[in-house]
Design a protein around this nucleic acid. Sequence first.
DNA 1: CGAGGGTTTGAATTAGATCAACTCTCGTGG
DNA 2: CCACGAGAGTTGATCTAATTCAAACCCTCG
Lengths: 240, 240
Amino acid sequence: MAEIRFQTAATGSEPCASCGARADSVCAAIHKDDLARLARIAVVSNVGAGQTFIHEGDPAVDFFNITGGTARLFKLLPDGRRQITGFAHTGDFLGLSSHGAYTLGAEAIDPVHLCRFPRASLRAVLNDFPSMERALLQHADDELVAAQNQMLLLGRKSARERLASFLTARSMARSCQPRMTRITLPMTRGDIADYLGLTVETVSRTFTWLKAEKLIDLPSPQEVVILRATELEAMACGLN
Amino acid sequence: MAEIRFQTAATGSEPCASCGARADSVCAAIHKDDLARLARIAVVSNVGAGQTFIHEGDPAVDFFNITGGTARLFKLLPDGRRQITGFAHTGDFLGLSSHGAYTLGAEAIDPVHLCRFPRASLRAVLNDFPSMERALLQHADDELVAAQNQMLLLGRKSARERLASFLTARSMARSCQPRMTRITLPMTRGDIADYLGLTVETVSRTFTWLKAEKLIDLPSPQEVVILRATELEAMACGLN
DNA sequence: CGAGGGTTTGAATTAGATCAACTCTCGTGG
DNA sequence: CCACGAGAGTTGATCTAATTCAAACCCTCG
């Protein structure tokens, strides 16, 4: 297991105030003037591509706020079968767990930047700033909605519908309106398969099928150009 | 569409204080002396078996707290395919939704008792009682963990493993330790199928298979006796 | 240039779906 | 009291979407 470099946020002058990810994250709920309070407990870390930084089942000591990069969140069965429950991006908050142990593993797909908050310390901050607790509830709620959509996908959609759903969701820009027509996939086919409840082969075949149908183009395996967004979206919810 | 009977909780003397479901629900976060405040905004309703009381996509006007009975929560695809995302029991809190519209439908399986809270009013209560907001966060968090387990089930488990998981989960008593050896299933095979991402036929076949293997007994279709909890649990997580 | 991921493609296999009876229970009404 | 019908459940035969097994095919990088 390799090293993870980190430093206390306090070493910077105004780490939270100058954090590029603040607007996207639950930290936005805290007023500028109070950010020092948050910065005091934050520990900035960098995680190299491929590194696991949360181990499912380990005692949950920290909360994490992703400030850059992409991580895969997953659960494993004893025999190694893997289900990716989601991909975490800038602004995502990890480490909510029911009873003291992490319920998910997390690995960096590309180099990930994150803030750690010791649970107890963050608890104290939340007591002082109910607005942040509210932001957390909102965040948990959004994740819950996403999870429910994913259950519908996993339980009831065909392979084509799953991939169409995935690409459509990816094409919706994270926080602004314009729908992306060209998207980049930082994760591998294997990750997509484990996210959509399929095999690598089926994902690959379905990609080539979508391409053959001229719904998408694939300049490279990681680059997808959506040629017919409307049809793709229709397919995502089972129409046709 | 049939009638749903309701009455303001305020008509009773101390509706929230005397509520049998309080200990199991987020309302437990509010101190006895402050319950009147909560009771003032609560509306008690009864929903007959089979009634839909939340329509997916409708504007989200109320929060709901289940005080008795069982409801199915589900999402639909345009062509009618259904995914049940969970079953709601006494103490469950419904109506969290991201952007003003219900993201799930809800139907009573047996007669359901519930409390409605207008969103705006509850928002005000939450401002006064941060402990309740915390309870809500905890509740959302628990649901999230359950949803992640269900994603693992739907994406990666076989039919046998799914049913074993379902029965094992059901055998864990809702709030106390003792594992039930005899469980009652208020929902139909169709509901179980739509919850586990299978068809009615497969669910039925798998039940008879589990019975043939002497892991369970089926005195009646709704009554399940777990004969070998350990093996069933092992099967639930893919061992053997 | 060769090795090792990641990806694609092909052929064979299978778990679960689909289609089709048939059974069981229970409630209604003659 | 029994015939009837409807909904739920079970069982069997067949079919198929996706998996599994097996080869290539790319790249990138040392």
